[in-house]
Simulated assay, not measured.
Amino acid sequence: MTIPLLICDDSNMARKQVARSLPDGWDVDITFATNGVEGVEAIRAGKGEMLFLDLTMPEMDGYGVLETIKAEGLKSVVIVISGDIQPEARERVLKLGALEFIKKPINKEKLTNVLQMFGLLD
């Protein structure tokens, strides 16, 4: 079954890097969002059952996205991918419902390992 995957990051280069790091043969339908507002709209439209989320973005940051998902009871499995590696940031996103926090720059092996660890790959 194809998984609606949303990559939400204000950096075009980072969005492309995440897309290139996806496991080979993973059955996903990718949507891109350039800020948190676009990201939340895409999740509401059913395009983000799986979400790879940056924290630092204009209009609405990743924390705001996580808070909105929680407040509205939206269905989305979230993995944060960010350069903000402070322990407080990791702790905060996990409390807000993110499954995991991966440090940028991401690589295929790390992403695949995290997806397998949580049973998100066949």
Rank of each mutant, 00 (worst) to 15 (best):
T68N: 09
G48P: 11
R44V: 09
K95R: 14
D27P: 10
F52E: 05
E59F: 04
K103T: 03
P58T: 14
V40M: 09
L55G: 08
K95H: 11
G25D: 04
R44S: 04
E88L: 02
G46Q: 15
I30M: 12
E88T: 13
M117I: 06
V18T: 10
I106Q: 00
A98G: 10
M117D: 08
V77F: 10
E59R: 13
D10E: 07
P23V: 09
P105I: 05
I3W: 05
S82L: 08
V28S: 08
L94Y: 00
I106N: 00
D84S: 12
E109N: 02
T112D: 07
D9P: 10
L96V: 08
D61E: 03
S21L: 06
R44Y: 05
K75D: 12
K75F: 01
A19Y: 07
L111C: 02
M1P: 02
G25S: 06
E100G: 01
V80H: 03
R92W: 03
G73E: 08
T31D: 13
Y63R: 01
V40Y: 11
L121F: 07
E41F: 04
L99T: 08
T68K: 15
V37P: 01
Q17T: 13
K47N: 10
L55C: 09
V114D: 07
S11Q: 05
G64S: 08
M117T: 11
N12P: 11
L51K: 03
V77D: 09
E59H: 09
E41W: 05
L111A: 02
S21N: 01
V18C: 13
M50I: 14
L6F: 10
D84G: 07
L120C: 08
T56G: 14
S21T: 00
I43G: 09
E59W: 02
L121A: 00
F118N: 11
R92V: 10
K108C: 12
V37H: 07
A14Y: 04
V40L: 11
T112L: 12
L94T: 03
K47W: 03
I30T: 14
I81V: 09
P23T: 07
G119Q: 04
D61Y: 04
P87Y: 05
F52M: 14
I69C: 05
L5T: 02
L66N: 04
A33I: 09
E88Q: 14
L111M: 11
K70G: 00
T112H: 10
G62P: 03
L53D: 06
L111T: 00
